[in-house]
Design a binder for these strands. Structure first.
Lengths: 193, 193
DNA sequence: GTCATCGAATGACAAATGTCACGCGAATTT
DNA sequence: AAATTCGCGTGACATTTGTCATTCGATGAC
């Protein structure tokens, strides 16, 4: 099931790859399967791969001094995950990434990443499109975090990303929104769902 | 004082520009001065320029239904500002940008931006470096917004970005952190500053 | 099949933060 | 110089959200 990657590139570069163009790119990735609860990255380690999710669900999170997890990203099919700073600078990561479901991914090492960047122009295009989209999305998330109440943020997520609510348990949704699980329960009760 | 731009590019592209390389780039920008409180972009308008701040201070913010401003970015010398989505897609912006102090900027239109991207490789490098840094910074800001209390966020800002606290009035700092001005007052009283 | 774990709901209470009204001094306007 | 606005602080009170303890049902482990 490598079509996921191909569709993704086609979409983000706004081109259709030829078969051997795709083959050259695909060959730089390694397939791997992770079981539920398995770590893909642990805090303190260097993030050695850029991760593309073919099937499944991952979470990226930090753990604070009190041992509480704070989910920075909830990721499903056709998303890239990783700690770009750690990946690029080979510095220890502050993030954990683990599997919320059994998950199939494609892994790209830094060496192969750099090779693709220098030999496959379409890959450069995909990357800058990703950066562009990412910047807009994170800006909106910051805006939502500083502007909205817990209830408004939850209702926003419900309106804009209902799939996440069905896919991840509520305590993870709570952490992702930056509130306690009890608060999500209360909001759900209040809005009758 | 165009040296600001030159230093910026040298730093972000990790190269030293030749004089006429720089001249070619510089020629695509327009200098402009804005007075305190003057708008550079208003909600609903298309963001026609990428803005580089040579001297001064700007704020980027949204206004909610209740008329309350929420500051998304506080920007000073050697920063880029703008609404990239609006700039790229020519869509109406949801942001306002105005001058907190008298400010000198360099403006780059979309046409000139695209020309630089296609004719000056160093400009492409600068852009992707900016994107990279931006992604890491916004990720950290999201993490801080969902993980920390108002007090912790304020102390973080004090530790990591004390210049902002001296440069902008406290009510803007409050809005930037997503809390009320009174909360900032209380925190300052509590930590004795 | 039984037991342990986990996700979710709930109520009581505490803590954090927002809202409103007011006062004061500095800066800005006229 | 006088008047106005603005930034900041402060107290009283309301609201939101967090914390803790408990219960229940579903799921998974053995």
């Amino acid at each position: 099931m490598q079509e996921a990657l191909r569709d993704y590139i086609d979409k983000y570069a706004s081109v259709t790859l030829s078969d051997d163009e795709f083959e050259r790119i695909r060959d730089k990735f390694t397939s791997k399967h992770f079981r539920k609860n398995q770590f893909l990255l642990q805090e303190g380690d260097v993030c050695k791969y850029s991760i593309f999710i073919v099937k499944g669900a991952l979470r990226q999170y930090t753990v604070d001094k009190k041992g509480i997890e704070h989910i920075v990203n909830l990721c499903t099919e056709n998303w890239w995950v990783g700690d770009r700073e750690s990946f690029t600078m080979l510095s220890p990561s502050i993030y954990n990434i683990d599997a919320v479901e059994d998950t199939d991914v494609l892994l790209l090492t830094k060496a192969n990443f750099q090779e693709l960047m220098s030999t496959e122009p379409v890959f450069v295009t995909v990357l800058s499109t990703m950066d562009y989209n990412n910047q807009i999305a994170t800006q909106k998330r910051i805006n939502s975090a500083i502007s909205l109440s817990a209830e408004e943020r939850y209702l926003n997520l419900l309106a804009n990303n209902p799939a996440l609510l069905q896919r991840f348990p509520q305590n993870m949704i709570a952490s992702f929104l930056g509130v306690s699980p009890e608060t999500i329960s209360r909001i759900r009760k209040k809005v009758q769902l």
